[in-house]
């Protein structure tokens, strides 16, 4: 279920594209802006973007699907990105990720049934001296263990 009615999304998209002078080179910035404003990049927005930037729908779809950041459906209320790259693995990130997913009833890369939390894998947050590292709603959390990460998640939910 989209959180914003389709018509409004269209207006938002047109507006964002205009702020970027309808420049095709700004496509990734436009997609970021859209996801920041409505939480995701719905398929329904792609034709509007394509028209505004004078690109084909396929070109826009190609870009959206290439980059890991853009999500087609809204995320949960709290988004947790946990690093599973080598430095964090050296400090036990993989079993930690499994425990966090199990605790919150969510598959890695997915959203819990109640829509409260999304857990995603990332590959390096540049906090490798304080591994394992996570971002909870864009807030960095370093040297995580179950307790520290769950506290940060609770903090973001309240």
């Amino acid at each position: 279920m989209p959180t914003v009615p389709p018509l409004d999304i269209d207006a938002t998209v047109v507006d964002i594209c205009r702020q970027h002078a309808n420049a095709p080179a700004d496509l990734i910035e436009i997609l970021h802006d859209l996801q920041e404003q409505i939480g995701h990049v719905p398929q329904s927005a792609l034709p509007t973007i394509a028209t505004a930037l004078n690109l084909s729908r396929a070109e826009v779809h190609g870009v959206v699907s290439f980059y890991h950041d853009f999500r087609e459906k809204p995320a949960g209320a709290v988004t947790v990105k946990i690093c599973r790259a080598e430095a964090c693995q050296s400090m036990g990130a993989l079993p930690l990720i499994e425990r966090i997913c199990a605790r919150h009833g969510v598959q890695l890369g997915g959203t819990s049934a109640d829509g409260r939390i999304t857990v995603e894998a990332v590959y390096c947050l540049g906090n490798c001296a304080l591994s394992p590292a996570a971002l909870v709603n864009d807030k960095p959390v370093g040297r995580i263990n179950d307790e520290r990460l769950n506290a940060a998640i609770r903090g973001a939910m309240s």
Binding site: P24, A25, D26, L27, I28, E29, G62, V63, Y67
Partner: peptide
């Protein structure tokens, strides 16, 4: 310019593609 979560865009020619608004 912001990246969008693609490691490959650290490779210079992919980065340039991405900066042009394309697939990296």
């Amino acid at each position: 310019r912001r990246g969008a979560g693609a490691y490959i865009c650290g490779e210079e020619s992919s980065m340039l593609e991405s900066m042009e608004g394309k697939r990296g």
